[in-house]
Computed example of a mutant assay.
Amino acid sequence: MSYDVQGTVADGFEGVREEFAAFVAEEAHDPGAQLAAYVDGRQVVDLWAGEDISGSSLTSLYSITKGAAHLVVALLVQEGVLDLDREVAAYWPEFAAEGKDRLTLRELLEHRSGVVGVDGGFTTQELADDRLIAARLAGQKPLWEPGAAYGYHAFVIGALTGEVVRRVTGRSVRELYEDRIRAPYGIDFHLGLPEELEPRWREVLPLEPTAEQLAALRERVAEPDSIPGIAMNANAPERTDIVAFGNTRAVRVLGPASSGGVGNARGVARMYAAAIGTVDGRPPLLTRETVAAFGGRRTPGTDLVTGQSGHFGLGFEYLTRRYPFLGENTIGHSGATGSLGFADPASGVAYAYTRRRFAFPSGEGASPENGRLAESVVRAARAA
Rank of each mutant, 00 (worst) to 15 (best):
Q125E: 15
A244Y: 00
Y351Q: 13
F316H: 08
G121W: 08
Q213R: 02
P209V: 08
E369T: 07
S258V: 03
I230S: 04
A10E: 15
G12M: 05
G310F: 14
H333F: 14
R174D: 15
V116K: 10
I331M: 07
A183R: 15
I64H: 00
A380K: 06
A374N: 01
V168K: 06
R252E: 10
L191Q: 11
E145H: 05
L197T: 08
L75W: 00
R382A: 12
V173W: 06
S60V: 04
G338A: 12
R102M: 12
L176H: 07
R239I: 00
S347D: 11
G192M: 13
L373Q: 07
A33T: 08
A37S: 05
R297Q: 12
T306G: 09
E203Q: 13
L326Y: 06
F325Y: 07
P194E: 10
S258C: 11
L84Y: 02
E26I: 00
G296I: 03
E51H: 08
P142E: 10
V116E: 01
E163P: 09
P361E: 02
W201F: 15
W92Y: 05
L254N: 08
Y323D: 07
T169V: 06
L127F: 11
P283H: 08
G99D: 11
T290M: 13
P361L: 13
L58V: 08
I227K: 15
E27V: 12
G267V: 01
G50P: 01
E27W: 14
A90Y: 14
L193E: 09
A21V: 12
R86W: 09
S57V: 09
A33C: 12
S60A: 13
E98N: 14
F189M: 10
G260E: 04
W144F: 14
G67S: 15
T8W: 01
A336M: 10
A250L: 15
A159M: 03
L61C: 07
N247P: 04
S339F: 05
L84Q: 01
E175H: 09
G162H: 02
S63L: 02
E375I: 04
L76Y: 02
R298L: 11
A21R: 06
F13N: 00
D241A: 05
R282P: 07
Q6V: 05
A350H: 04
